[in-house]
């Protein structure tokens, strides 16, 4: 089965970009595709545990459910996380603080299409 790679660079609460990324990932996963999400720049807020937005969609909880379903993998850039004070152990269980070199390059090599969600 083919793999969709999503690169998200927008913060979780900045606009609906992360929501779009999660909805694409969910639809792709439900159609049987593998999905790899790489969070870069402000996008790393996606993996922060304990997100609790009032009234707005909880993209952290929604993407956690996708990871638990099995064919979605999510990694975030370690340098971008460090820059924003997001430390290992603060990520949503099942997600990973990784790197461009180890994770995104693998996602690209194993991927069939990449979609960039950023402004």
């Amino acid at each position: 089965m083919k793999t969709m790679v999503i690169q998200i660079r927008t913060g979780s609460m900045m606009n609906m970009d992360t929501n779009v990324a999660v909805k694409l990932a969910r639809a792709a996963s439900q159609k049987g595709y593998d999905v790899r999400i790489f969070a870069y720049g402000e996008g790393v807020t996606l993996i922060k545990e304990g997100q609790d937005p009032k009234r707005f969609p909880n993209v952290g909880a929604e993407s956690k459910a996708l990871v638990e379903a099995g064919n979605v993998e999510i990694s975030a850039c370690v340098t971008c996380c460090a820059a924003r004070g997001l430390r290992r152990g603060e990520e949503i269980p099942g997600m990973k603080i990784g790197s461009l070199t180890n994770d995104l390059s693998r996602y690209v090599a194993e991927g069939d299409r990449m979609i960039t969600i950023a402004r």
Binding site: K2, M4, K23, L24, R26, A27, A28, Q30, K31, Y33, D112, R113, I115
Partner: peptide, 10 residues
């Protein structure tokens, strides 16, 4: 819909 968007992309 989103499934249709995925079909176009993939």
């Amino acid at each position: 819909t989103y499934p249709e968007a995925v079909e176009l992309i993939m």
